[in-house]
Design a protein around this nucleic acid. Structure first.
Length: 545
RNA sequence: AGGGGUGUCGCCAAGCGGUAAGGCACGGGAUUUUGAUUCCCGCAUUCGUAGGUUCAAAUCCUGCCACCCCUGCCA
């Protein structure tokens, strides 16, 4: 018996124990509609469904719920597959609702034969008008009592294309007085002349989600059909289909709360607007909550999965702080990212007492967390750059960095002393004239000087100019209640720096993440043909508190 | 009396009648050639609320309150 980590696994365990389900046949499915890009919310569902598969040694298909040809595209299906691959999940099969169209149609005929469904001639408006309200029952359709023969004939003619779109539909005959509106003779088949991305123009009738889904689950052998909370009201209909059609074993639908994350827009509509209005560079913009965006951002899939595991699965509506995701990303990257040095705002430093033309190599630790420390060489010479933020003319108390007449250590190299400041004609700091302490070299410092601060630097001779980008959130940190999306848009979610970076970062694969020391985690990214350094997540900063 | 759900620390979330896990965040301290990391220590006498049952209740019962979802031929 596996140890349950959430209420769904608890249910599965109980069912196995009671013999309700075969422990060797646990099966789930990841069921996106191929009508858009997957986002971080889907990652939660992916982790849940594939988590159950892996835990119970069961199966999990990628089920593309393509019952509405007007919204679905091949392009989305391919993007979905790529995202799943990125997360490292392997599905047993790729199946589509459309693979089962013929069988679903037969099941509809069966419902008609059993007197459980009828062809209704009312228009969508009429059906809506007769559905009743939340507090009042609906009215039965005048076509509700057609004979089985007539229903069958009409349903066949619907398929044959004898009726225009919307003129007729197939409805389940359940209960127009049900307090659950989904049970008031729901439409289960509609006439729709739309080219389907997989079946083309073969069909002009398409099953509705509520009818197709339980059938597809059953046909695949799904034992547990996991979906989000808004489908709770649909479960009676899901069960109705299974029971009337005599499914055995009948799949069980279980609902869980969808993921909400602060400062993130998840709605497809708004995401689309961001793309269309040019607020972002596309669906894969590093600021987007889409999986393609997160991947482009450099969020490690391991960290995303860790996040999903840590937030858990429950039924309470909740909103997770984005800082939780960031913590997971930092934790992973801290252990796995190589360190490198770059400066966002280069400030020239000349080491006046260092010999002209001399260059030496210092040892730089690749990742201080490694058990077996690895180092690489970095050139050091008379001319270097430090970050302008690491020098202050008017330092606050407890300032650890460089100040006039102060000392600071250059990471992996020497301690320097700021002797003089060169200003430009506008009075801005242009250059620092420093002297280095010759016997303070990293590794064999015999100078006896204790410095509080250590800062990163880039050697002028081999530093590369590069645009460095840091990101803010797409949504401002506001009370989401009552606030319109457009009012919450953060118009300044990109900060651009003309920085310098050591050449080492170009020697690895483009997706390699680095911790730019004291700056954050970054990776290279090609934006409009130009290579930049793009922020993955910042480093935690306790100093500003 | 529409129906279906949910309410445990700032944010997630365990708990399933025996006297409030854990993570993130936060506060304090130690170590640190990243003000990072790591390491200690602290962080709900209380579980939406009011009653009841019980030797014992976050867990059982009853009432109330709050929030979410449902009137697509969308999923």
């Amino acid at each position: 018996m596996v140890e349950a980590t959430n209420f769904i696994e608890q249910i599965i365990n109980e069912e196995i124990e009671s013999g309700k389900v075969d422990e060797n046949k646990i099966q789930t499915r990841f069921p996106p509609e191929p009508n858009g890009y997957l986002h971080i919310g889907h990652a939660k569902s992916l982790c849940l469904n594939f988590g159950v598969k892996e835990k119970y040694n069961g199966k999990c298909n990628l089920f593309l719920d393509d019952t509405n040809p007007s919204k679905e595209k091949e392009e989305y299906e391919e993007a979905i597959k790529k995202d799943i691959e990125w997360l490292g999940f392997s599905y047993d099969k790729v199946v589509h609702a459309s693979d089962f169209y013929e069988q679903i149609y037969s099941y509809a005929e069966k419902e008609i034969e059993m007197g459980n469904a009828f062809v209704c001639d009312m228009t969508p408006e009429e059906i809506s008008a007769n559905r009743g309200t939340l507090t009042e029952p609906g009215k039965e359709s005048p076509y509700r009592n057609r004979s089985v023969e007539e229903n069958l004939k009409l349903f066949h003619e619907m398929r044959e294309g004898k009726f225009p779109d919307g003129s007729k539909c197939l409805r389940a005959k359940i209960d127009m007085a049900s307090p659950n509106i989904n049970m008031r003779d729901p439409v289960i088949y509609r006439i729709l002349r739309e080219t389907h991305y997989r079946t083309g123009d073969k069909w002009c009738v398409y099953p509705m989600y509520d009818f197709a889904h339980p059938i597809c689950d059953y046909l695949q052998g799904v034992t547990h059909s996991l979906c989000t909370l808004e489908f709770e009201d649909h479960r009676p209909l899901y069960d109705w289909v299974g029971i009337t059609l005599g499914f055995n074993p009948k799949p069980r639908q279980i609902e869980f709360a969808r993921l909400n994350v602060t400062n993130l827009v998840m709605s497809k509509r708004y995401l689309k607007r961001l793309v269309e209005e040019g607020k972002v560079d596309g669906w894969d913009d590093p600021r987007m909550p889409t999986l393609t965006g997160l991947r482009n951002r450099g969020i490690p899939s391991e960290a995303l999965k860790d996040f999903c595991a840590r937030i858990g699965i429950a039924k309470a509506n909740s909103e997770v702080q984005i800082s939780y995701l960031e913590a997971c990303v930092r934790e992973y990257l801290n252990a796995n990212a190589e360190r490198a040095m770059a400066v966002l705002k280069p400030l020239k430093v000349t080491i006046t007492n260092y010999p002209d033309g001399k260059s030496e190599q210092v040892d730089f630790e690749i990742n201080p967390n490694e058990e077996i420390k690895r180092t690489r060489k970095i050139n050091f010479s008379k001319h270097i750059y430090i970050d302008a933020e690491d020098f202050s003319l008017a330092p606050p108390p407890k300032y650890f960095r460089l100040k006039k007449d102060g000392y600071v250590r250059l990471k992996s190299a020497y301690i320097i002393h700021c002797d003089d400041v060169v200003f430009d004609k506008d009075g801005n700091v242009q250059e620092l004239l420093c002297s280095y302490v010759e016997d303070s070299r990293s590794g064999n410092d015999t100078s006896g000087i204790k410095v509080k601060g250590t800062i990163q630097w880039v050697n002028e001779a081999d530093g590369k100019d590069i645009e460095i980008r840091k990101y803010g959130y797409l949504l401002k940190d506001a009370e989401y209640e009552g606030q319109d999306f457009s009012e919450r848009m953060n118009e300044n979610s990109v900060s651009v720096f003309n920085g310098k970076v050591e050449p080492y970062v170009f020697t690895n694969d483009i997706d390699t993440p680095y911790q730019l020391m004291r700056t954050g985690y970054f990776k290279r990214l090609v934006v409009k043909g130009k290579e930049i350094l793009s922020e993955i997540v910042s480093l935690k900063d306790n100093f500003n508190k």
